[in-house]
Design a protein around this nucleic acid. Sequence first.
DNA 1: TATGGCCTGATACAGTGTATCATACTACAT
DNA 2: ATGTAGTATGATACACTGTATCAGGCCATA
Lengths: 161, 161
Amino acid sequence: MTDAALHIHPTGHDHAACVGEALEIAETLCVERGARLTPLRRRVLELVWSSHRPVGAYDILGRLDESARKPAPPTVYRALDFLIEHGLVHRIESMNAYLGCNHPEQSHTGQFLICRECGNVTEMDDDDVRQTLRRKAAERGFDARSQTVELVGLCANCKAG
Amino acid sequence: MTDAALHIHPTGHDHAACVGEALEIAETLCVERGARLTPLRRRVLELVWSSHRPVGAYDILGRLDESARKPAPPTVYRALDFLIEHGLVHRIESMNAYLGCNHPEQSHTGQFLICRECGNVTEMDDDDVRQTLRRKAAERGFDARSQTVELVGLCANCKAG
DNA sequence: TATGGCCTGATACAGTGTATCATACTACAT
DNA sequence: ATGTAGTATGATACACTGTATCAGGCCATA
């Protein structure tokens, strides 16, 4: 974990605390559910949380390499699948990349705000939006089961700066 | 164009008319804008419109093969870029695939309803949704410039059937 | 200790997308 | 008609993303 770029984040916050909190939440949640947060899965989650920017599967793969012997792609995808299934990670469809989520309790598919300047992504998770989309789709006879909402633009910091 | 699966569509409508209309609209629009709808671009647009399901770039590539000598990937991607730029085609992010649009006049990024049963995709293009998203993002200090909205679920036909 | 289920390793391959350079086709001006 | 600039296409190579499949290892419980 030497790449400074990994540590870019919105406000000058203590990112180590973010990661720590996320890992702790994950531990707790997995215990509750009887799911196994193995060292590999934990490590992948940690790498996904290395910044507030989505991380590609092959980035993760590359960084796992550094520490021990190199795992193959399926290993990473399986870990990601597990984390996604438990709401600990989101997939950003428009980037084919993955982002940590620190409130996995609510079953949800969030709405994502992707800054085209700094690359940081924040989650909205707004229920009005969710309901509006469900309703609008229903008006057209469509029964929406899952939603992908990703907005690209400028975050507050980058607008100001 | 022998694959019957290509012709699956929502209601038993006359899909040839869909394609014809789309091509005509494209012609008109390109003339208006001084853009060149070359034979290749026209053919790619036609292939995208072969159904109401998103088509992958390499599907297009494969079908271009059938007729003449095989073009390389960049050729297809350039044609798609052109068509997207002019609003004639949308990219469905969650599927890495492309869908024809028959109302390219309004500058828009639509909202898409993807049926997980039949695979057909319809466009909502609802301005309430667009405005709601813009506003909700703005409330968080985010200036949204482009929106990706893709809902997966069951279309009216598949619910009924 | 045996069995079954889950996790991981490993190979191979399929699908998606881009960088780069080369060629051809206009359209327009000389 | 020639040259020139801009655009469109051809072609090669490569990078990134994801999956199918089989094999082995670990661990809990019977």
